[in-house]
């Protein structure tokens, strides 16, 4: 049997299948259903699952009910209020402990106090830069963590792992030693003009936390390209992470994004003043 005959045979089989398929209503319905299942599956993996993917390895509500057995309703309410107060105190304690831990390190670190709208850069426990936050946006994903989970999440300082920015961390200028005094006179033309470019940066910390700092002032028109590539890069990073996870049949790790708005001067001083892998103490409530 030669190749053309085999091909013809295969083609006939495919043709027959298509003909059968096109005239079988149940087959078409199943195919349509399966086809539309793809976005639904992706939606579940990429959106629904991360939104509800808190690790519920904590006791469930039944524990409270057991502990409150025999108490009247008022007492139960009082106890639950007290429990809530204690949780808040524990969260406060964790935040202060983190500040203390970070003060032992030599380089600068961040102290972010969301209830007071303050971002401090500190060295050895001394605030060297205090920034008033003019706008704060916190991802709503934090809602799916209860207080014990929040406490676990913030129990140790966060550590920066990478960052992305519209400005360089340091602007080094390399200068070759002049051969004589006349060449030196040409080289020493004076200091570089102050950098006035817009400052937007994001620091990726461990435990899925990302802090984005944006300047309050409107950027210049001519900076559109730089800002565009910055936005593209940070969104691209999220997309590629989501895509990789979905292709692997997994839910992407939920990112907790906190977006802060400060003055341009503060944003620049903080970005330039922070080390490559900064520490962070976070107060959420």
């Amino acid at each position: 049997m030669d190749l053309s005959k085999i091909l013809r045979l295969i083609w006939n089989e495919i043709h027959d299948f298509i003909i059968w398929f096109a005239h079988s209503k149940p087959a078409i319905i199943v195919a349509l259903f399966l086809t539309l299942l793809l976005p639904a599956y992706v939606f579940y993996l990429a959106v629904v699952s991360p939104a509800s993917s808190c690790d519920h390895d904590f006791p469930t509500a039944d524990t409270t009910e057991m502990a409150l057995v025999g108490l009247d309703v008022d007492s139960s309410q009082m106890i639950l209020q007290k429990v809530d107060t204690i949780w808040d105190l524990e969260l406060d304690k964790a935040y202060l402990s983190n500040m203390l831990l970070l003060s032992f390190q030599d380089s600068a670190y961040l102290n972010l106090n969301l209830p007071d709208s303050l971002l401090h850069m500190e060295i050895k426990g001394v605030p060297v830069r205090e920034c008033r936050l003019t706008d704060i946006r916190v991802t709503k994903r934090l809602r799916c963590l209860n207080k014990s989970q929040l406490l676990q999440w913030i129990s140790t300082p966060f550590l920066g792992r990478a960052d992305h920015s519209t400005i360089p961390k340091i602007r080094y200028v390399v200068k070759e030693a002049p051969k004589d005094t006349s060449e030196a006179a040409l080289q020493n033309a004076g200091p570089l003009p102050a950098d006035s470019s817009s400052v937007f940066f994001i620091v990726y910390f461990n435990r899925h936390l990302a802090i984005e700092v944006r300047q309050r002032e409107e950027p210049y028109d001519y900076e559109e390209e730089v800002l565009g590539s910055y936005e593209k890069e940070i969104q691209g990073a999220v997309r590629s992470k989501t895509m990789q996870a979905v292709l692997a049949g997994l839910s992407p790790e939920p990112e907790i994004l906190i977006r802060l708005e400060v003055s341009k001067a503060d944003a620049r001083a903080i970005y330039r003043g922070l080390p490559a892998y900064p520490g962070l103490a976070l107060k959420l409530q």
């Binding site: 939104a51 469930t60 524990t63 502990a67």
Partner: peptide, 13 residues
């Protein structure tokens, strides 16, 4: 996430 119910927080007891 807006439609995810707020979690209970009983583990302290």
């Amino acid at each position: 996430v807006r439609f995810v119910p707020l979690p209970e927080d009983p583990s302290l007891l």
